[in-house]
């Protein structure tokens, strides 16, 4: 499954939001990938997510595959859309 999100918060996908994303992703058993343009990284890897350098307004695709893939996709999209509880 896959869904598209746009980074909302001002500072982009920096350390704290990335960590939140990864912490949530790791709660699911399914494979989770995040794509920006032609780069696809492991959604459970903080280091890899950080290398995406996703600033405010960046379009990302979240790809989930396996057990509870739908719940995972929904939860992760909701987190990104909420702006990680930061200033938008």
């Amino acid at each position: 499954m896959q869904g598209h999100v746009v980074i909302q918060n001002k500072l982009g996908l920096h350390a704290r939001p990335s960590a939140q994303f990864v912490a949530l992703a790791r709660q699911f058993a399914c494979d989770i990938q995040v794509q920006r343009l032609d780069i696809i990284v492991n959604g459970k890897s903080l280091m890899a997510i950080l290398t995406l350098a996703a600033s405010q307004g960046t379009l990302l695709t979240i790809i989930t595959k396996g057990q509870h893939e739908q719940e995972a996709l929904q939860a992760l999209c909701a987190l990104v859309n909420s702006g990680f509880g930061e200033a938008l």
């Binding site: 704290r16 990284v41 890897s45």
Partner: peptide, 15 residues
């Protein structure tokens, strides 16, 4: 938060 980030990196699957 910095130290917690580091802790998360230590268990990073890509690393």
């Amino acid at each position: 938060p910095v130290l917690e980030t580091h802790l998360m990196m230590l268990s990073d699957p890509e690393l």
